[in-house]
Design a protein around this nucleic acid. Structure first.
Lengths: 135, 135
DNA sequence: CTGGATCCGACAGGATACTG
DNA sequence: CAGTATCCTGTCGGATCCAG
């Protein structure tokens, strides 16, 4: 469980929970970047109930720009969380759905939502206390 | 489980997992910002085994600047994840430790690390496939 | 309908120097 | 030892216009 930073073969590494992570190949970073984005987790949740079309997602999340919608979908697709299917209709339609990996990730996101809901009050309270201390 | 975006009292809201979230007061956003930061989760993990002093954290995470170390600790303290204790010695020493809230959050972070480790390969593979498609 | 291309402001985060 | 202050850069994300 202990964490140690050191050098292995000249590269910086960190040991967390018994695993060795190198700086340039950190598994957690890959995942965190997919959580940290402004729309990523919301998009995962949006697809929780099944496939959705581009325009449906736009309606569901009205305050996302189509630029960020496209970009978010691309990022999630690239990392294998969602699948993109094009139907050669006229005009074309595209739908997005969670992959198996994405559904696995969804359960993590749900836990995140649950934890957030439960502890939201505590966080806000701590923040208020902290902000009141100085000023 | 369904998600609906709409207006309530003129403010944009989103319904996820049966809960109503307003855009300006979204619990998940508060938490995600504490995960998304470059050093936040690493800091939580660093304090998993007990209190640590500022300099100890610097040694543990060599490639963090003291600017970001200070800022990360402040942010986590503000939101109630960690406690900061000053000992009036000469020279002064300060230690940081997880609060109850922080320890609760730690279990989430650990799950994140576990999931990342398990699915890292799949993510990298998907990424390679995606990147190979075009070019 | 599903995007791509471009411009631009805001802000996170790195490097460096200085302080009680 | 434990920070502040300042500068600088890259990237995120919004707005707008264009395209197959």
């Amino acid at each position: 469980m202990n964490k140690i930073a050191g050098k292995v073969d000249g590269e910086q590494v960190i040991v967390v929970m018994g695993r060795v992570f190198s700086r340039s190949d950190c598994p957690v970073r890959d995942v965190i970047e997919n959580i940290g984005g402004k729309w990523n987790t919301l998009m995962i949740l949006a697809l929780a109930d099944g496939p959705m079309r581009f325009s449906a997602l736009r309606r569901l999340i009205p305050d996302i720009s189509q630029r960020m919608l496209t970009q978010t979908l691309r990022d999630l697709q690239r990392d294998g969380y969602i699948d993109r299917t094009v139907f050669p209709t006229q005009p074309p339609s595209v739908d997005y759905r969670l992959t198996v990996l994405g559904q696995s990730f969804l359960s993590l996101v749900k836990q995140l939502v649950d934890w957030s809901s439960e502890n939201h009050g505590a966080i806000r309270a701590a923040r208020d206390v902290y902000d009141a201390r100085d000023v």
